[in-house]
Amino acid sequence: MVKQIIFDFDGTLVDSTEVLMSVFNELADKYKFNKITNADIETLRRMSNLERSRYVNFPLYKVPFIVAEFNLLYSQKIKNVNFFEGIKDVLDELNSLGYKITIISSNSEKNIRDFLNNNNVTIIDEVISSNNLFGKDKVIKKYLKNHSLNKSDVIYVGDEQRDVVACKRTGIKVIWVEWGYDSKEVVLEKEPDYVVSTPEQLLNFFKT
């Protein structure tokens, strides 16, 4: 029986596309990779992470070297990040139903906590940064161990293919939300356990 719900942050709880694009393009100026525009977003949604790195001419192995700078620039624009419509109500109702809610994200813990504080959200039990873009499975495994949780006690809610892959490696169920960054065709290749199209569907999943 599910006791705890782990959420991704960007693309799942919050719509930060414009902020992420702005930060990315600031770094593109400095590190000489290709900028992206709104016209590129739909194309990028249909790509794997490796294809995206080639598209913007920025190798994935360089990502760890700009994470700190990326997080700092993101923090300066945090007031432009907003919950997806209906998501805050979903979180409140899940809390009232007795679920514990955790966020595990590649974004920094500081950025996430600043956002939560700015939006008067106090019901999140824990915020954890995975630091490594592709190391979320290790963070989830550590979380389960630290809290003496069985795999069946937890479910993950995310929007990207890599969220599904991390959960498969960890052995926990994953709900993919259709309103996030990765396209359906990309994510379904990895076979998420459940798919929801709206926040209302997400809430109903936990009510039934």
Rank of each mutant, 00 (worst) to 15 (best):
D29W: 03
S197R: 13
A68M: 10
F24K: 09
V139Q: 06
Y143G: 01
L116W: 07
N120P: 02
K3F: 01
E69D: 09
R54P: 02
I175E: 03
F115E: 06
I128F: 10
Y156S: 01
L91Y: 00
K62C: 04
T122W: 03
Y99V: 06
T43H: 12
Q4C: 04
K207E: 06
I66E: 04
D114R: 13
V174R: 02
L72T: 14
N95E: 10
L149V: 03
K138L: 15
L188W: 02
E42Y: 07
G135W: 06
K79S: 14
K184N: 08
V2A: 02
L203D: 03
Y61N: 10
N117L: 11
L97Q: 12
V154E: 00
S130V: 12
I87W: 11
V81K: 02
F115S: 04
A166Y: 05
L27R: 07
L133W: 11
D163K: 05
N95F: 13
N131I: 14
T17V: 14
N118Q: 13
K168P: 03
H147C: 04
N131T: 13
K142M: 12
L116M: 10
L133F: 14
T17R: 10
S130K: 04
L72S: 13
R113I: 14
K77I: 00
N49E: 12
W176T: 06
W179T: 08
I104Y: 05
Q76Y: 10
A166Q: 05
K110I: 13
S152C: 06
K77M: 11
L149P: 07
N38A: 09
D159I: 00
K145F: 13
Q161C: 05
K88Q: 14
D10A: 09
V127L: 09
N117W: 08
L202F: 00
P64R: 02
V14K: 01
I128T: 03
N25A: 02
P59N: 06
L72G: 05
K184A: 09
V56R: 04
V165Y: 07
V56E: 06
Y99S: 05
N49Y: 15
K88T: 00
E200V: 13
N132G: 00
K136E: 08
I5N: 03
Y55V: 02
I123G: 02
K184W: 06
F134G: 00
E85Y: 12
N107S: 14
K32V: 02
V90E: 04
R45I: 06
S148A: 11
R113H: 05
D137S: 15
T37W: 08
I5W: 08
I112G: 03
K151C: 04
N146Y: 10
N146A: 09
I172Y: 06
Q4V: 12
I140S: 07
F7Y: 11
L94A: 07
R46E: 15
